[in-house]
């Protein structure tokens, strides 16, 4: 299999701070990769580079064999890269259903009725069907995260970037999110999942990449990463890591 997305030596700096320090990473089509690391390790910055919000100072990023450095987030969304945000971003003044029907999610030439039906079916699948007409501002934190999932499904992307989707979400909704992520992956969508929820990461991902201070410190199957001394040290500190290993 060839890699769907490849980054090679990506560097992103903010003033004197190097947020990403020569990050080399790849994901194959249909893979589900967990991205972990302590706070400030560069996980979200990495997603911002992949989704076009930040332009790296050095290195290359290519998606399906073509460089995507400097392309607009909207162009990357159209090309098949969808994402969610750590702090949920929805159109609060639109209704729940209207959130799925904004331009971009629906082609300008698409029949409005067909788009609305698709949107309703997606909301039903996410248990948000009964809230379709409600203003999105009325949704709970977990429901808003699910609505972001619905938006991703409207885009029918090839690669999904999820930034802390389980933060502050009720366990019932979390199970639904797990099932949805597995379902996307089973259909061949590749996923990069950032989460501090290690249970979810180890449950869902077959490969985990760990970052610390903007560098990749581990990359491999969950069991290997879990016992990797560098990862233990990053999370627990030197003495505790020695004790744990």
């Amino acid at each position: 299999m060839t890699a769907q997305l490849v980054t090679d030596g990506v560097v992103k700096r903010f003033g004197g701070l190097t947020a990403l320090d020569h990050v080399t990473f790849e994901i194959e089509a249909g893979e589900l990769v967990g991205l972990i690391g302590p706070n400030g390790s560069g996980k979200t910055t990495f997603l911002n580079v992949l989704s076009g919000f930040y332009r790296p100072e050095q290195g290359s990023v290519s998606f399906e064999g073509r460089s995507i450095v400097g392309r607009e987030p909207s162009a990357l969304a159209t090309a098949g890269i969808a994402r969610s945000f750590q702090v949920t971003k929805i159109f609060r003044r639109l209704s729940v259903l209207e959130n799925l029907l904004v331009p971009g999610l629906t082609d300008w030439s698409a029949a409005p009725r067909a788009a609305a039906e698709k949107g309703r079916a997606i909301l039903d699948g996410l248990d948000l069907g009964r809230l379709a007409g409600e203003p999105a501002a009325n949704l709970s934190g977990g429901q808003a995260k699910l609505l972001e999932f619905g938006r991703i499904m409207m885009l029918a992307p090839k690669l999904v970037l999820l930034d802390e989707p389980f933060g502050g979400v009720h366990p019932t909704l979390k199970r639904l999110m797990h099932d949805t992520i597995r379902d996307w992956n089973a259909r061949g969508t590749s996923i990069i999942l950032i989460s501090h929820d290690m249970g979810s990461i180890f449950d869902l991902c077959r490969r985990i990449v760990a970052l610390q201070n903007g560098r990749v410190i581990a990359n491999g199957p969950p069991e290997a990463v879990r016992s990797d001394p560098a990862v233990l040290q990053a999370y627990l500190g030197t003495r505790s890591a020695r004790a744990a290993s």
Binding site: E72, P73, A82, F85, V102, G104
Partner: peptide, 17 residues
Amino acid sequence: AVSQDRETAAIVGVNAK
């Protein structure tokens, strides 16, 4: 959409520019 949230509009494919 852009007047409500420029970033969100961008990630759903709206050309904010």
